[in-house]
Design a protein around this nucleic acid. Structure first.
Lengths: 345, 345
DNA sequence: AGTTAGCACTCGTCAGGGTTGAGTGCTAAG
DNA sequence: CTTAGCACTCAACCCTGACGAGTGCTAACT
């Protein structure tokens, strides 16, 4: 982040007023309209201050005879020093809460619900990652015969995540034998993650060879599950971009939608976020993605129990109501954390 | 469908040329440009014919001094009588085939892949429904203890569709007992659908009461699964609409996207399709949805084995290359049918 | 010295008007 | 029945001038 120029009291008030006005109306704001709001000073005084705020890079003038618009840097200063976060209004709470009233068993469904709820609450595109798990643990497994050559592995993981995968059978095997093996594996394997399973002592018994072979395939599949869960990103609310004037340009819209629909790009974006602080705001070009130069991200962490964290947040225009969006993201994050915590217990 | 006015040879050729030209360029087509293409007649002659084609409602003039644009009725006549379907070009085949090379086990993943493939192949929004099943059959079930009050039901259905649901336990029950019950139920239940299960003879045994209670819950859940699968509609390729000039108007785009994102509306749309014929084309207002008055649907059925059918198709601008889209939809439908058939076996 | 009223100036927006050109419909001759 | 010719229409384009929002600068005031 760039070193920010310190501002005196009055310049701060004016910058804050510019951001507030522009966020509300979307129209460049001039000295006159500021003067009615900040009645302490005349428009001429404000004009002088606006000029210096432009010089130090906090404001931008689209053209000579236009009002001022906050620059990325201006938003940054606002967000860091000036913003008064607004409480989540009851109406929004009443809009969000019902989503978390119906709680499905599977963790993926919960994440999807959170994405929808946040998209509504923040009127932007919402992004949600699965809780980072550092190796998902097995709760239960089962084997179902598909054919002489294949069996279906059904894994119930923590969070009631259900995964399925066809495994190859080295020799035709009865469902009875498969069930026996499954029972045996269940006893040995419950509570382990992929790493733990690969350290299992050698199994013995009538079907030892088959069992060992299947276990290898199961471990491989779990490794894939781990990777998949770490890159899983859900989103919702693309339609919310459509009614915003800054996306009237279809070109721009297209670029943003392409980023959102491409999970790889989202992953890069979210992993770039530094979430040690409670909330991370990336404004315009700060995200490092040219396509999102006119978008901002507001991200936070949700905690499901001790060490299980995921990311949730919002992607919208740089001209978003940061003072409202932050608290709303946190509100949904907290609800989500609780729901996921319950599902993981 | 409206009764179509019969056209003589020359009018047919001209209408066909208008549709071809307009589909390609998106610009209203005038008599002069038609005259170079249909060198047999002068522009004046063509002008006369265009006038009568407008009178009978096959063409529309955006304004007095503009060229002609096909009306919904004009497209309809073209599609019914004039269109020469084009073979799916090798390049498109090479684009589609890789999607079906990696075949996941779960039927939902297969459907998703088909949606993506078709969206690419047809450069429009693709729609795919799950194969209509008239009651999904159970392949395998399992019960996993969650707490003293709840157990997780894991159902493996035909097509390796895995479904999960928390069931309530009337009394604390060991995992051992649950497994025993699951084994017992498996023996009785495999191959049955919800209807079949509700006709099961009364069970007896040590855990008869619990077993009966669980079975009731399972049947209820399966009924829900049936309903869900019948309304499941996947889609992909909304981004393909963005680069089309007719959707430069964000208003219009917004309406269409809202329909696509609302599964209920898609369901109504698709169920309205009459798929006895090989392919069903709904042009503009024929769909009966005001929001889609400038869109067309091209739908067909895919068959997975004997009686298992689903719907797959495309939603795009009325100005779409019908001669290309139809065959491409059929091509993907055929691939999808084969893949689903394999998964259901 | 900081503040402010006043004023000249800039520049985007909008409405009006003339020109252009694509495309038509009609007519009259072939 | 076909077609060349022509008058006509109308969107698109460009130019223009009026308007007004907003600025920067200056000079006077506290």
């Amino acid at each position: 982040m760039q070193h920010s120029v310190p501002l005196d009291q009055r310049k701060q008030q004016i910058l804050k007023a510019v951001v507030a006005d522009y966020t509300r109306t979307g129209v460049p704001v001039g000295s006159a309209s500021l003067a009615v709001h900040l009645a302490t000073w005349s428009s001429a005084t404000i004009r002088n201050e606006l000029a210096t705020l432009s010089e130090v890079g906090y404001l931008i003038q689209p053209h000579t005879s236009a009002g001022r618009v906050p620059s990325d840097l201006g938003y940054r200063y606002y967000v860091d020093f000036l913003m008064d976060e607004e409480d989540v209004p009851p109406a929004v709470r009443r809009q969000v809460d019902p989503f978390f009233a119906v709680m499905p068993t599977g963790i993926e469904d919960i994440l999807e619900i959170a994405a929808t709820a946040l998209a509504h609450a923040a009127d932007a595109v919402s992004l949600v990652t699965a809780p980072r798990a550092l190796g998902v643990r097995v709760k239960h497994l089962d084997l179902v015969k598909l054919s002489d050559a294949q069996a279906l592995l059904v894994l119930v993981l923590e969070g009631n995540l259900v995964r399925q995968q066809a495994l190859n059978l080295t020799a035709p095997t009865d469902q009875g034998v498969l069930s026996a093996i499954a029972t045996g594996l269940n006893a040995a394997v419950v509570g382990l993650n992929a790493a733990g399973m690969s350290r299992l002592p050698e199994v013995v018994g009538v079907h030892a060879a088959l069992e060992r072979d299947l276990l290898t395939q199961i471990i491989a599949f779990m490794t894939v599950c781990d990777a998949q869960q770490d890159t899983l990103i859900l989103h919702d609310g693309v339609r919310n971009l459509l009614h915003q004037p800054e996306f009237g340009d279809v070109e721009l819209l297209q670029q943003v939608i392409e980023v959102v629909e491409e999970e790889r790009m989202l992953a890069a974006l979210i992993s770039a976020a530094d979430l040690d602080h409670g909330i991370q705001i990336m404004i315009g070009r700060e995200s490092g993605m040219a396509e999102l130069s006119r978008c901002s991200l507001v991200l936070t962490t949700y905690r499901a129990g001790a060490e299980r964290r995921g990311t949730i947040g919002v992607l919208g225009s740089t001209r978003m109501a940061y003072a409202q969006v932050g608290p709303r993201v946190r509100y949904v994050a907290q609800r989500l954390g609780r729901a996921v915590g319950r599902a993981l217990s």
